[in-house]
Write a protein that binds this DNA or RNA. Sequence first.
DNA 1: AACTCGGGGCA
DNA 2: TGCCCAGAGTT
Length: 216
Amino acid sequence: MKSKEDKKRVIEILRILYKNYPEAKTALKCSNAFELLIATILSAQCTDKQVNKVMKNLVKKYPSPYEYAYVNPIDLEEDIRTTGFFRNKAKNIIACCKKLIEDFEGKVPDNMEDLVSLPGVGRKTASVVLGNYFNIPSIAVDTHVNRVSRRLGLTSEEKVEKIELDLMKIIPKDEWIFFSNALILHGRNVCKSKKPDCLNCDLNEHCSSRDLFILQ
DNA sequence: AACTCGGGGCA
DNA sequence: TGCCCAGAGTT
């Protein structure tokens, strides 16, 4: 994946993604890093729609880590119930905020190592915060980015950290955030895990897995 | 590596 | 009504 042909293929893929998913250009809108961190923790296994719905109440009720740290877990569970996994998420958010207060002066850290040390925060969540708020280029590899990148032939790795490295080598740095966001949309709408819609996929000419799904 | 959490979306 | 899913923690 370093010949001129491959580079041209990546550029073409990016061009198509820009055309089809212009909304992926704009970073997530959150008024501060803390708000984005909470929203991203909540986003596990649910849609933006579900997250946005509960965030309206959360930003008013819990403007900082200090409000979460001493809330009755039952109350928080109720506030985030509709995002699913609400008991785990409530427990993690409370523990996360206590650690933010104790170890980070109540501020969201701006590096991967410290971010993933927070309860409920893995590499995917950390990458989103770094990329979308701190403007530190990063590629958030969720299940969609993972699956679609491998189908396209942009990586053959399986571990998230190795996939990140492969993608960072071949995707121009300025496009990392957009690339993650666009592949998530493409993975949900077209390149679905069970029945990918290859016939209607605008990337199929540049995809190494296309025949796999069309010939059956 | 497999298992668990869970309400919402969709056929 | 049943199946699947925009992660992370635990064993």
